[in-house]
Design a protein around this nucleic acid. Sequence first.
DNA 1: TGTGTAGTCTTTAGCATCGAACTTTAGCTT
DNA 2: AAGCTAAAGTTCGATGCTAAAGACTACACA
Lengths: 182, 182
Amino acid sequence: MGDTSGLGEPTLEEQIAAYQREFQDLDPQVEKIVNALSRLNRRMNVAYGRQTAELGITNADWEVLKALVLSGAPYRMGPSDLAKRLGLTPAAMTHRIDRMVAEGLVTRDRDETNRVRVIVELTPAGREKWQEAMRMATVFEGDLLQDLDPDERATLGEVLTRLLRRVEDAQPDAGGRLTDLD
Amino acid sequence: MGDTSGLGEPTLEEQIAAYQREFQDLDPQVEKIVNALSRLNRRMNVAYGRQTAELGITNADWEVLKALVLSGAPYRMGPSDLAKRLGLTPAAMTHRIDRMVAEGLVTRDRDETNRVRVIVELTPAGREKWQEAMRMATVFEGDLLQDLDPDERATLGEVLTRLLRRVEDAQPDAGGRLTDLD
DNA sequence: TGTGTAGTCTTTAGCATCGAACTTTAGCTT
DNA sequence: AAGCTAAAGTTCGATGCTAAAGACTACACA
């Protein structure tokens, strides 16, 4: 007994069993769901990280590209808005934009009508990178959900949305800070 | 139209709609599931972060406590094993242990039978912190899943486990690096 | 017993992030 | 107008992480 994968990570079932051994009043059902969610997310981020690396960008870059694209044409946002959207401090945003400008993914210009503002705008190259990343991501995601039949997908989507609504209502403040992709 | 929450974050539905607007060949069903997973995870981490902060520790500390407790009595692990388990480099582990020793959560000693090894052991205070964190976490988790009836919980757990198995099989290398709790 | 080799941590240098202080601009208020 | 206040970004100092290099111990083999 013990963990199978050389300490790298116990099986989900082994982990739940260990929790029960060390903590009374534990609902294994609940713990299974919560731990599966965490582990799934981590694996997804690993997968995305490999894909973005293959494109010569980082997950951090990709997050910014996503925010800009999703804002719609003409794909412009201010650093503060981006920072709020991504859950970063403005300071971190400044440096991230520095890097992305150097990589040619976005441009940074002062707003002429309000000179205290800065406009970050997606370049065609940045948009192209986003699309390539999306193509890779959708392939991965389709593969991930391959074993689920249409009914299961619908149910899963509905249930997760319900959970999300509950937690977002309870945390109205976008409260970010903590890593993670969008 | 547009986003409701002052740029902090669009609704999941709005976000999916934006994806469809900007990217052809998108399966909204799939995207909904994947994005809900990411967002749920982020909110969970925010919640955990608030709880651990309330206990005077960090999520990083909590991860280490979890690994030690789950390893079972006598709650000892080497820094390298911990690092593998948490997806950190040994270097990061060294510093994290420094801090936790200073906080009295763990002890660090050389293994007398193999003087190149180090043994990190949970202190009673560390174990106590872990239990308090668990109590808070289980309350939050129970509340999160409150709206799901037993059938839905069972189904959700089963489906997520299936997804996890699929992605863990595809990424046998624990491949960590990317942030996130366990 | 001497030496090579592998394994375990620690140290160093570089990078991204945060919190807080600072600079600049816009818009009010009087 | 002159000055106040608020908002938007940038800069600064500290922290935690990674990758790579270094130090030390154990073990194998000659």
